[in-house]
């Protein structure tokens, strides 16, 4: 079961997700140690495998650094749910085979610590703690294909 880590914030940026002082490496395990460090220094300790980050608008704004996605993947985060995503971060997620979930009002529908069960095919989030099922719009087919193939390069190779 995935636990929600809710940040009542818009514009959580790439500098907060992975500060530039750690960009001298592209080693995922190393980056993962500092995931979300400048937003919540305790995040890596709190986050269990498959847990979910929940935020407001414009998540991932700022730099084009894919290191932000790698840090999140490396920290074993299962999904990021946000009201909206910054463009380059959103694209980087898909390219890395990581599903960004756009959900209006996410930070009002999900409380910190809620247990979630996400069905990506159906486009539903089962909020076990609140006993409610939340719908989200699944990614368009071409993006789903990339994610199913495990990322853009695998997708290109397959083609």
């Amino acid at each position: 079961m995935a636990k929600a880590h809710v940040y009542q914030r818009d514009h959580v940026n790439t500098d907060e997700i992975i500060p530039a002082r750690y960009l001298n490496t592209d080693d995922t395990a190393e980056l993962a140690k500092h995931c979300m460090e400048d937003l919540d220094a305790e995040f890596v300790k709190k986050c269990g495998a498959g847990d979910v980050i929940v935020c407001g608008d414009d998540f991932g704004c700022g730099s084009s650094r894919e290191h932000a996605v790698w840090a999140i993947q490396g920290a074993r985060v299962g999904a990021v749910i946000a009201h909206s995503f910054a463009r380059i971060f959103y694209r980087n997620c898909i390219n890395c085979g990581f599903y960004p979930i756009e959900l209006a009002g996410a930070i009002d529908k999900i409380n910190d610590g809620d247990e979630l069960d996400i069905d990506y095919e159906a486009g539903t989030i089962d909020n076990k703690s609140q006993g409610k099922t939340i719908q989200f719009t699944p990614l368009p087919d071409f993006a789903l294909e990339i994610i199913h193939d495990g990322g853009l390069l695998e997708h290109i190779k397959k083609k």
Partner: peptide, 12 residues
């Protein structure tokens, strides 16, 4: 601007 995976795809 693009990330590293797009960059790899563009280079190739």
């Amino acid at each position: 601007g693009i990330g590293s995976t797009d960059l790899a795809a563009a280079i190739a």
